[in-house]
Amino acid sequence: MNKINIIYWSGTGNTEKMAEAIKKGIEEAGGEAKLLKVSDANISDVEEVDKIIFGCPAMGQEELEEMEMRPFMDEANKKLSGKKVALFGSYEWADGEWMKTWEEEVEDTGATIVDTLIAYDSPNEDALKECESLGKDMARA
């Protein structure tokens, strides 16, 4: 089964819109996607799949959200070795350094990064199409 879990944190709804577009792409490519806010996810949602997508906007000094997403990733990183992973999120300042740092963190677990995607502010139509493409790429990976 080509099942992919999408676990994300969204404060303003931008990352949630991206997650929904990624889910659409997965399903259009014949995959099965489960969309989970990080507050509703648990570590079994990471363990039960070979492919997983995480989403979080840049926060603070270009960091992951620290109350829910950061603690979840600290646990999830222990379970990512051998999995195919994609990362996404939005930002409104700086240059997207948080995504580069996050990608390196996940690669260090032994996971394979299939793709990363960042959108400036509220994702426009082009950014949402890129999200759908990311979903299709993950379904085919």
Results as ranks from 00 to 15, higher is better:
residue 65 E to W: 02
residue 11 G to V: 05
residue 76 A to Y: 01
residue 95 D to P: 07
residue 17 K to L: 15
residue 40 D to L: 08
residue 63 E to N: 14
residue 112 T to V: 11
residue 15 T to N: 10
residue 140 R to Q: 15
residue 81 S to P: 01
residue 115 D to E: 15
residue 109 T to V: 01
residue 39 S to L: 12
residue 33 A to S: 12
residue 31 G to Q: 02
residue 85 V to C: 05
residue 14 N to K: 10
residue 34 K to D: 08
residue 60 G to C: 12
residue 120 Y to W: 13
residue 84 K to Y: 04
residue 102 W to L: 09
residue 15 T to Q: 00
residue 28 E to Q: 14
residue 18 M to T: 04
residue 72 F to A: 03
residue 19 A to P: 00
residue 117 L to Y: 11
residue 44 S to M: 15
residue 64 L to S: 02
residue 4 I to P: 02
residue 112 T to E: 15
residue 72 F to R: 07
residue 126 D to R: 12
residue 49 V to K: 06
residue 80 L to F: 06
residue 50 D to A: 14
residue 2 N to Y: 02
residue 71 P to R: 12
residue 133 S to T: 15
residue 123 P to E: 07
residue 129 K to N: 13
residue 32 E to F: 06
residue 4 I to W: 00
residue 99 M to F: 03
residue 11 G to Y: 06
residue 120 Y to V: 05
residue 39 S to D: 10
residue 63 E to R: 15
residue 62 E to H: 10
residue 85 V to T: 05
residue 36 L to R: 08
residue 112 T to D: 12
residue 32 E to Y: 07
residue 62 E to T: 09
residue 43 I to H: 12
residue 77 N to Y: 07
residue 73 M to H: 02
residue 46 V to P: 05
residue 15 T to C: 09
residue 21 A to S: 12
residue 15 T to H: 00
residue 123 P to Y: 08
residue 116 T to W: 03
residue 105 E to Y: 00
residue 23 K to D: 00
residue 52 I to L: 13
residue 31 G to Y: 06
residue 128 L to Y: 09
residue 80 L to R: 06
residue 37 K to L: 13
residue 101 T to C: 07
residue 50 D to I: 10
residue 57 P to D: 06
residue 101 T to F: 13
residue 8 Y to V: 00
residue 83 K to Q: 02
residue 131 C to D: 08
residue 40 D to Q: 13
residue 21 A to Y: 02
residue 82 G to S: 10
residue 42 N to H: 14
residue 61 Q to W: 15
residue 46 V to F: 03
residue 74 D to H: 04
residue 119 A to M: 09
residue 1 M to N: 13
residue 32 E to T: 14
residue 4 I to C: 04
residue 37 K to F: 08
residue 60 G to W: 13
residue 31 G to N: 04
residue 3 K to T: 08
residue 68 E to F: 06
residue 26 I to C: 06
residue 6 I to L: 13
residue 114 V to S: 07
residue 14 N to W: 04
residue 94 A to K: 11
residue 141 A to C: 11
residue 19 A to I: 09
residue 77 N to W: 03
residue 107 E to T: 07
residue 50 D to V: 10
residue 22 I to R: 00
residue 62 E to V: 10
residue 73 M to Q: 07
residue 18 M to D: 03
residue 107 E to H: 05
residue 82 G to C: 09
residue 33 A to N: 02
residue 69 M to V: 08
residue 9 W to Q: 11
residue 29 A to V: 12
residue 13 G to Q: 12
residue 64 L to W: 01
residue 6 I to W: 02
residue 134 L to K: 05
